[in-house]
Design a protein around this nucleic acid. Structure first.
Length: 189
DNA sequence: CTTTGGATCGTCT
DNA sequence: GACGATCCAAAGG
């Protein structure tokens, strides 16, 4: 299921559940990052110490530090040796909301707990120590679970957010109408 | 509601 | 030495 290109895997990840210890969230927004061909990808320009996990087997978690402040989490796709991954941009809290609240004092509304790539990592407690974990191994702290709710048949597609190159590709996928998205439409920057 | 600027540091050139 | 796959508070409409 995670073996293909990020572009194909991304929409399939919608409505899957990300479980971290006692906390869990339903994925409602993702972005596809292709590897060597994608100037916006961390893997563009080749393998480095930071992005090594992206070049590993599918189904593992790639976590990096953004702006020296926040962590962001990706699901690695593709064959070993290729670097294609899906950035998790927003989830709907489904379990452990009290813990998420404690971890995110800045959140005013429940939807502010996890409606952004850095926010969801802070709420769920994901950091660089989770880089490389196998999401399909039941023993892992971070897991990806299918609870039977299928992906939306017609996900909303928009350009990716926060990048300055390859902005023309509509590689952001959202669950239509979800109140837990990071943004409904793409704003300037 | 929208816009703007600052924080902060690991990573790569 | 420069730059982010970001977030938040503050200020203005």
């Amino acid at each position: 299921m995670l073996a293909g290109r990020a572009l194909d895997v991304a929409p399939v990840l919608l409505n899957k559940v990300l479980v971290v210890g006692e906390r869990a969230g339903r994925i409602v927004e993702v972005e596809a990052y292709e590897g060597a061909d994608d100037p916006a990808s961390h893997a563009y320009g080749g393998r480095t110490e930071r992005n090594a996990t992206m070049f590993g087997p599918a189904g593992h978690l790639y976590v990096y530090l953004s702006y020296g402040v926040h962590h962001c989490a990706n699901v690695v796709c593709g064959e070993e040796g290729t670097a294609t991954a899906v950035l998790l941009r927003a989830v709907e809290p489904v379990k452990g909301v009290a813990q998420m609240r404690a971890a995110r004092l800045a959140a005013r509304r429940d939807r502010d707990l996890t409606n952004g790539p850095g926010k969801l990592c802070e709420a769920l407690g994901i950091d660089r120590s989770h880089d490389g974990v196998d999401l399909c191994d039941p023993r892992s702290t971070v897991r990806l679970v299918d609870d039977g709710i299928p992906p939306p048949p017609s996900p909303v597609r928009t350009p990716r957010i926060g990048i300055s190159v390859a902005v023309e590709h509509p590689w952001r996928f959202c669950v239509p109408g979800s109140p837990y998205l990071s943004r409904v439409s793409v704003r300037s920057r």
